[in-house]
Structures are given as structure tokens and as C-alpha cells.
């Protein structure tokens, strides 16, 4: 698989994880144990975005 295709594939999977985190946050509304851990997981997600999102975003069509 070409690097750009691989990057896009990972970036799309990251989007799905971000959606799942938002859903988790909604389900745990008002529960600090959920909200705080979601924030923390968003930190980990940010690192993966730093690796893969900008390359995907600058892909020449």
C-alpha cells in the first residue's frame, strides 16, 4: 500500500475512535471517572493525529 493510502486509512480509523470517545462521553455525562478518562484518551489520540492527520490533510487529490 502506498504511504499516502496508509496514512489516509489510519486517519480515517482515528476519526472513528474520536467518534467513539464522544459517544462514551455522552453516555457517561456527569460521571467524573468517564469525563476525565475521556480527556486523557483524547491526549493519546492527539499524538496519533500529530503523526497522521496533517499528512492526510495535505494529500494532493
Amino acid at each position: 500500500m502506498a504511504p499516502d493510502d496508509r496514512i489516509r486509512e489510519v486517519a480515517e480509523a482515528l476519526d472513528r475512535v474520536a467518534s467513539a470517545l464522544r459517544e462514551l462521553e455522552r453516555a457517561g455525562d456527569g460521571i467524573p471517572a468517564v469525563e476525565r478518562n475521556v480527556r486523557r484518551m483524547e491526549g493519546t489520540l492527539w499524538v496519533l493525529r500529530a503523526h497522521f492527520e496533517p499528512p492526510a490533510g495535505t494529500k494532493t487529490p
Binding site: P3, R6, H51, P54, T58
Partner: peptide
């Protein structure tokens, strides 16, 4: 650690860097 970004074509890397710089 990241086989994709560590071996990117230099021109592609510069393109990404400029996008990230602007951000």
C-alpha cells in the same frame, strides 16, 4: 517507530511541515 513519517519523501515532508507550521 513510525515507518511512514520517518521515511517520507522529502518534498512531501516539506509540504506537511508547511501545513503544520501554518496551523
Amino acid at each position: 517507530w513510525n515507518p511512514i513519517t520517518e521515511t517520507l519523501d522529502p518534498d512531501r515532508l516539506r509540504e506537511i511541515q508547511l501545513a503544520k507550521f501554518r496551523r
